[in-house]
Simulated assay, not measured.
Amino acid sequence: MLAKDLISDVIPALRTSDTGMQTLNWMEAFRVSHLPIVNNKVFLGLVSDSDIYDAKNTEEPLGNYRLSLIKPYVYGHQHIYDVIEIASRLKLSLIPVLDSDGNYLGAITSHNLLHHFSDLIAAHTPGGILQIEVGVRDYSLSEIARIVEDCDSKILSLYLTQSPDGRQLYITIKLNRTDMLPIVRSFERYGYKIRAEYGAELHIDETAIRNYESLMKYLNV
Results as ranks from 00 to 15, higher is better:
residue 80 I to H: 07
residue 81 Y to V: 09
residue 84 I to A: 12
residue 84 I to Q: 12
residue 84 I to T: 13
residue 85 E to R: 15
residue 85 E to G: 06
residue 85 E to K: 15
residue 89 R to L: 11
residue 91 K to M: 07
residue 96 P to Q: 01
residue 98 L to M: 04
residue 99 D to E: 07
residue 99 D to Y: 10
residue 101 D to F: 09
residue 101 D to Q: 12
residue 102 G to A: 01
residue 103 N to W: 01
residue 104 Y to S: 01
residue 106 G to N: 02
residue 106 G to K: 03
residue 107 A to I: 00
residue 107 A to H: 01
residue 107 A to F: 00
residue 109 T to I: 00
residue 110 S to D: 02
residue 111 H to T: 12
residue 111 H to M: 06
residue 111 H to V: 09
residue 111 H to K: 13
residue 115 H to F: 15
residue 115 H to Y: 15
residue 116 H to F: 11
residue 117 F to L: 15
residue 119 D to E: 12
residue 120 L to M: 08
residue 120 L to N: 04
residue 120 L to S: 07
residue 122 A to D: 14
residue 122 A to V: 09
residue 124 H to F: 13
residue 124 H to K: 14
residue 126 P to G: 03
residue 126 P to E: 08
residue 128 G to P: 03
residue 128 G to W: 10
residue 131 Q to L: 00
residue 131 Q to Y: 00
residue 131 Q to V: 07
residue 132 I to V: 15
residue 134 V to H: 04
residue 134 V to T: 13
residue 140 S to C: 07
residue 142 S to F: 10
residue 142 S to Q: 11
residue 143 E to A: 04
residue 145 A to L: 08
residue 145 A to S: 15
residue 146 R to K: 14
residue 146 R to I: 04
residue 147 I to N: 06
residue 149 E to W: 02
residue 151 C to Y: 05
residue 151 C to M: 08
residue 152 D to M: 03
residue 153 S to H: 01
residue 153 S to T: 07
residue 154 K to C: 00
residue 154 K to V: 00
residue 155 I to E: 00
residue 157 S to P: 02
residue 159 Y to V: 01
residue 160 L to T: 08
residue 160 L to I: 10
residue 161 T to R: 12
residue 163 S to R: 07
residue 165 D to A: 04
residue 167 R to N: 08
